[in-house]
Nucleic acid binder design. Structure first.
Lengths: 245, 245
DNA sequence: CAGTGGTCTAGACCACGCT
DNA sequence: GCGTGGTCTAGACCACTGT
């Protein structure tokens, strides 16, 4: 049954966005019990082929345009630090205007756990500024991140004040305002199924994994920022250029 | 019910690898019907917390050591082209000996479709050598890939002969043997749930997404190889270094 | 062979969305 | 208020895994 429904979606007989027949209709059509219908739909949901909305029905998942997150976005940000243009890597990636960009933010001070300390190359317990963000484009949540800065470096500066977010030019510009120029970025990329809180915050449909980036930003051979970035995988492709010359 | 079982796994009460109580035991313990037990387990499976094996039971998913696929692996491969050492980026990534490395392979000639043609920068319909591989470490499938080379470039050479696979030094070495030195690699990274054939070929447990890389290998400013690489996401982290100087 | 999960039926009540 | 999906019960037969 799942095979037949999958075939209909793949072949275009059930176009993207279209509602599938209701569960009771499918019971009649395939002459099976409700539980069987629901199991078949659960399979398709797990594959990310369909999504279900309470009280409305189940529909073929529309294809969303994939945006590219190029590794050259840091270079662009760096180039524009002095231009005064209102951009960040986020608005550039999303190809949206600064005005369509909104941000949920929550700052707190916290000691470094072992993982973060190792990424920073400092002792566990070192005090950090933790900044949690949810990025929205036109109000729709697109990605979330938790960024850490060494508290000793930012305490009392404008960077530590949530009221200054979103900050034109992003992280690069913030670090520059503190007198640091970033020289390299290391990104570790993993994928997994989202946690319940991530599904909630980012409105992730069923069957969609998330890409998780752990980013270390280097300036002067030191790690100045560590960030965990979570992005629903159905809307994005990461783009890396590796030069061997 | 799913919440309680999740708590047990998270808290360590059900250690990784341990079998959960059987479905009938859980029915008794929680005083619910079988269908309810199965739905709760389906939730945990979708989250990747547990895996189920027919006739054996359901167990908390063991934490598998994550291996790193560093972007510098191409550089290493390049360095070793002339050393004659028996390595490829795959054996290096897996930290396994050459002898533990086996490969399923299937070669055929095929015209380029639009997507591949664009990645190569050639006309659609250009003839290609398509090579499908499943990489195994100690017999366990770890990743699969479909690699394309311009037929005109490889026809009649040892590279076009499946009997020469696995080829020491990998792709880099193959291209070198044809007189080309790779100068850069571009990787596009996406994540999604695996298709049924991928689940089957790679023995991917439920709730585990795959990382999909589209790789373009450049030599002499031309794209000499295009490959799609599929890796189960529970065993791997990709590592990229972005230099801004 | 006993015990496990895989699949299915036939019925029930509830929560949500739309009109 | 009607139709949608969400959840649940109680029972059945089958397929696979281990001993």
């Amino acid at each position: 049954m799942a095979d037949e429904l999958r075939r209909r979606i793949m072949s275009g007989a059930t176009p993207p966005g279209a509602l599938l027949p209701s569960e009771s209709t499918l019971m009649a059509e395939f002459s099976v019990a409700r539980g069987t219908v629901r199991e078949a739909l659960a399979v398709l949901r797990a594959e990310g082929l369909v999504a279900t909305e309470m009280g409305r029905g189940t529909y073929a998942r529309p294809v969303v345009p994939v945006r590219r997150l190029g590794s050259d976005r840091y270079r662009k940000e760096l180039d524009q630090v002095r231009s005064g243009e209102l951009v960040t890597s986020f608005t550039a990636d999303q190809q949206i205007a600064w005005s369509a960009y909104t941000l949920d933010k929550k700052f707190r001070e916290t000691p470094a756990n072992e993982t973060i300390a190792e990424l920073f190359g400092v002792e566990p317990g070192t005090m950090l500024l933790e900044r949690r963000f949810v990025f929205r484009a036109h109000g729709t949540p697109q990605q979330m991140s938790t960024s850490y800065l060494l508290l000793e470096m930012v305490a009392g500066t404008p960077v530590a004040d949530p009221a200054n977010e979103p900050w034109p030019g992003g992280n690069t510009s913030q670090l520059y305002s503190l007198g640091h120029t970033i020289i390299s970025v290391r990104e570790q990329v993993r994928a997994r199924m989202p946690r319940a809180d991530e599904v909630d915050a980012l409105k992730i449909p069923g069957g969609v994994p998330v890409l998780v980036l752990t980013r270390q930003t280097y300036a002067d051979e030191r790690v100045l920022e560590v960030a965990d970035i979570t992005i629903p995988a159905d809307r994005v492709s990461l783009d890396y250029q590796i030069d061997l010359r």
